[in-house]
Amino acid sequence: MNAREVAIATSITLMIVLLAYVIEAGGLGPIAPEKLRELAASYIISTYNPWNITHSAQSLEAVTAIVWDYRGLDTFFETSVLFISIVGVALLFRGYREKTGVGGRGLSEIVKTSTKILAPLILIAGISIAIHGHLTPGGGFQGGSFIAVLLVLLSVVFSLDFVVERGLSTSRLLTLRSIGLMGVFATSIALLLVGLVTGVSAYVFQNMVREGAPVSMPPWFLDRPTGGTLLFFNVFEALAVATGLSLAFIVLSLRREEVEEALERGEWYE
């Protein structure tokens, strides 16, 4: 252990001791209070509240309502962070060419067949979690990551070639991902556009009727609430996340030689 490590260890220890002291000395109040924070109570009371619709998201699930409606902006930019990172990985490995027929054995026949049977089940479970995001725990990101891990699993269990041959080439994934992202973007400004066309005022990320903004998304589909924009957000987000994560994984797992020939030596200068 050299001096630098000791210094780092000391400062970290100091930090965590301070942190623990603040928490334990009541800096945040009791760790699990009996009384809910007022803001949280407001969220729970207004998340599905047909009697006071101007503050409501019309979604039974408070977390999804906060994620996509009350704090929709956060989530929009969260999606863009994911977008940036995935495009960033594509930038790092830019110019690669997918090769098929290189081989790759995959795992044993038993695992392959089992995963094959699992595929539709995981897919539908992901879709179910995504479209019920405003009714039961879950949502677009959860459903999307289900599907993404399925695609990762397929590319591991079979081989990269297999996935590419079945039509999930990176350019197609990119197209699907763009559709998903543009869907998210369109949903976020849909009511604003409607308001501009019909000449009434409306907000960005508006969902239900608000003070001074009388446009609204459809609150019901058949016999269950849709949460207005939440259903659309969830579906598009699931699409974007699933394709985006698997795209990043496929690009990351490209073989060395596929990237090597794409290197543009001399593109940079001292």
Binding site: L107, S108, I110, V111, S114, T115, I117, L118
Partner: peptide, 9 residues
């Protein structure tokens, strides 16, 4: 399905 495939793998 999962348990057997995982163990075998």
């Amino acid at each position: 399905i999962l348990a057997q495939a995982g163990s075998h793998a």
